[in-house]
């Protein structure tokens, strides 16, 4: 999929662990792991909103489009 989830990058910038984020956004570790590893097929706006609020970032900081044709 050409959409990359940069959740691990943002978590590292904010020095936040997955379990801490899981508690703060009220998502299971399994679901966050699906998102972090790029296995997710879709993301709810409510989830995106919660993650952006906790990590103090924009949706664009978490999601990146790459069609693989970059030089």
């Amino acid at each position: 999929m050409p959409i990359t989830v940069n959740l691990d990058v943002m978590m590292a910038k904010r020095k936040m662990s997955l379990s801490e984020l899981s508690e703060k956004v009220d998502l299971t570790l399994a679901n966050l792991s699906i998102l972090k590893t790029g296995k997710a097929k879709a993301i709810r706006f409510s989830t995106l909103e919660a993650i952006c609020r906790v990590l103090e970032c924009q949706p664009g900081d978490l999601l990146e489009y790459d069609d693989g044709n970059k030089k």
Partner: peptide, 8 residues
């Protein structure tokens, strides 16, 4: 179902 399960 797979799509639903992989929606977070």
């Amino acid at each position: 179902q797979t799509e639903h399960e992989l929606t977070v």
